[in-house]
Computed example of a mutant assay.
Amino acid sequence: MGEEILDEAYRRLHRTGPEYEGWLSNHGPMAVEALVRHGHGRAVHRWLDAYLGRLDELPRGLRPVEDWREALGDPKRAGDWLAHFDRELRERPWREVLGTWWPRLLPGIAAGATHGVIRVGHAVRALREARESPERLAELGQALGYWAARWQPVPGADPSTGAGRAATPTGAPGDGDPRVASALAGLPRIADRSGGIRDRLGRLPALPDWPAALAALPPASTPAGAGWDLAALVHGASLDYLRFGHAEPVMLVHAVTAPTAVLRTLPALDPALWAPSVAAAWSATAAVTAMYAPVRPAAPPAVAAGDPAEVFARAARHGDAHVVKLADAVLEAHAASGDDRVLAAAGYAGQLI
């Protein structure tokens, strides 16, 4: 039943564009995938009834994408990109399309305030964990198209580089990876907090410590190590939300959900792409933290305890897409680490947003 509900939801959403009100991201496809995955499919259509009214129509194309490098990062070509990936996914297996485009899109991980990669991560999970369907393939195409249209690099980041560590830490990410903790703790902060994410990204190169911050988490040189690093990064970012989320409750969600999206995509990728994926995920979390987190943390919040199912149920009742998506991410972090503290991040977001 859940699979049918998700496909129905995708059909409703695919009449709408990837953004609304100029540049705000359409969170519908991501939120409904999370709701269905965690057993709340019966709430999906009611949630959509309230959400769809704010969305714009599907953008029209201008001309076919012929020189993809020229069209990359041009939001005026959003309709062209959506049509391009719709055609590619009709003609080739989805894993082949993803494998071709992931390394092309990865350097632009800041696209749409990281919503490009986040939407792709939800779409890939829907395809990996259940049957393929025309609706799920179409959703991957729309996610990739949105990422391509809004493609935007993190200044100074280069996901193609990174001779990494040879060793993989032992234990679980929840044990606390000192490398990740040190890298997160050492992130600088921009002083000028005016404007949106595109304005703030342009201020990162002026930070004297920014190059060192990007290099503070070198990727592992093995696929197993890369997966471990990403799980540890999601874990550390989830705990950081409890310390800094009060300052920018919505935007700091993406410091958690962006690396989570990369982590859940790894199994569908060639292992040779895992290390650069870690580097890109780290650059996204580092950038969001540097742009939106305050210098000083807040006192630990008081959040009602609950098991994973109850934590997500509360988020579903809350209804905000960012709260739902953060709950979805921290449940994965909890499954990987066993650390109950990360679950509190979802409840804290529910209090703040």
Rank of each mutant, 00 (worst) to 15 (best):
L82P: 00
G108I: 09
R104H: 10
T114N: 12
G116H: 14
E66I: 01
K76V: 14
A78P: 13
R69Q: 13
L62R: 11
D67F: 11
R104G: 07
G79T: 01
E88D: 02
R69M: 07
E96W: 12
R77Q: 07
D74L: 14
G112D: 03
P93N: 00
A111Y: 03
L72I: 14
L106I: 07
W81P: 06
E88G: 00
H84S: 03
D86W: 05
V97L: 07
L89D: 05
V65F: 05
P103E: 05
L106T: 03
R104W: 08
G73A: 11
A78Y: 13
L82T: 04
K76Q: 13
W101Y: 14
W81M: 04
V97M: 08
A110W: 01
P103Y: 00
G73T: 12
I109L: 12
G79E: 02
A71Q: 13
L98R: 02
W94C: 02
G99C: 06
P93A: 00
W81N: 04
F85I: 02
A110N: 03
F85W: 02
T100R: 13
R95N: 04
L82E: 10
E70R: 11
F85P: 00
L62P: 07
D74K: 15
G73R: 11
G112K: 00
L62Q: 11
G73P: 12
E66P: 00
R77N: 03
L82Y: 09
A110M: 09
R95P: 05
G99R: 09
L98P: 00
G73F: 12
W101S: 05
R87V: 09
L82S: 04
G112W: 00
P75K: 02
R87T: 12
D74V: 15
A71V: 15
P64L: 08
H84W: 09
R77P: 04
G79R: 00
E91K: 06
F85V: 03
R95S: 04
T114D: 07
E96H: 13
E96K: 13
W102N: 09
I109R: 03
R90G: 15
W81F: 05
